[in-house]
Simulated scan of single mutants.
Amino acid sequence: MSSASRTTLRESPRGRPAGTALRRQTRTGWLFASPALLVVAAVTVFPVVFSLVLSFWEIKLDYGGLRLGSPTLSHYESLLSSPEWYQALAFTLGFTLVSVFLELVIGTLVALVLERLGAARGWILALLLLPWALINVVAAQLWAYLFNGTYGAFSWLCEQLLGSRPDILGEPVPAMAAMVAVDVWKTTPFVAIVVLAGLMLIPGDVYEAAEIDGAGPWTTFWRVTLPQLRPIVAIAVLFRILQAFGVFDLPFVLTQGGPGTATQSVAILGYRMLFQNLDFGGGAAVAVTTAAIVMGCCLLFLRVFRAQVDEEGKA
């Protein structure tokens, strides 16, 4: 009998063939995991499918509730021809790119400083976590008081320095800048902690080898530290893109999407179409289109990242 046949007939310690034991373990695993999978399907898969269906059907709202009419593409046609949609998309993209870039740069600098600290690192980490631990609505409300044009601290400071009280949240550009500043203040600690974890995993002999080769601090950072951090940074950026692109509570509390629609994100636009205008099909189209854009951006980001890793591996 060949070795392959003996492997096939090999039995488990309890006397059953190994394949049978493996199948039984697999069924047991699915049995225990099925409640959690059902919960995940109920809170994620069903809403996504339901939104997709609503976006492609005519919706009739009466005293009996929602009723599906006939299939249609009118929701997407109206959305793609709406200037409000493009304005909300432009604001969301700009907010995401600027805030994530600033958080990545500042968070990396903070992580580099924390890596060199000794006993005080724990206390500083605890202080850094305070903004991240605050509920978004509470943090946004606190900053709304600070930016208030009548009694806000920033308006008072501008009056002392410039001689006038600017309405920070009442003008488009200052309102956008204030929103980015609040998001950077709140989320930079998350990026810093993720990057710090990556720095702690870099072996020390890599730096010793770079020092022996005569590399300075700047060269060591770009040629040694940054390549080692690339997977960790990719994860942090991916998480932040997903969160920033779906921003709702920050502009909703600070400006209600104003002045006008200058700070209206795609999430606020979908909320208004769904719950204020009762345009369920249009709101579902906003949600589906936004999800498709985010998924496409994330897949492109992961593809570029994988290509870079493959090139480094070949080199």
Rank of each mutant, 00 (worst) to 15 (best):
S2M: 11
L9D: 11
S12V: 01
R14C: 02
P17C: 00
G19M: 11
T28S: 11
A33K: 10
A36G: 13
L38C: 08
V39E: 05
V40A: 09
V48S: 11
F56M: 08
E58V: 08
Y63I: 13
Y63P: 04
R67V: 02
L68R: 07
T72L: 04
S74L: 14
S74I: 13
S82I: 01
P83G: 11
E84N: 12
L89Q: 04
T92W: 00
G94L: 14
L104F: 14
T108H: 02
A111F: 06
L112Y: 08
W123A: 15
L129K: 08
W132P: 10
W132L: 09
V138H: 04
A139S: 14
A144P: 05
L146A: 14
G149F: 10
C158A: 15
Q160E: 11
S164W: 12
R165I: 00
G170F: 09
E171K: 09
V173W: 08
A175Y: 01
A177S: 07
A178V: 02
V180T: 01
V184A: 09
D213Q: 01
P217L: 00
T219D: 12
W222L: 09
V224L: 00
T225L: 00
P231Y: 08
I235K: 11
A236L: 00
R240I: 03
L242R: 04
A244W: 00
G246E: 12
V247N: 10
V247E: 14
D249S: 11
L254Q: 04
G260W: 03
G260Q: 03
A262T: 05
Q264E: 15
I268P: 02
I268M: 13
N277H: 11
F280K: 07
T289E: 01
T290L: 09
I293W: 01
L299T: 11
L300G: 11
D310H: 07
E311F: 13
A315E: 03
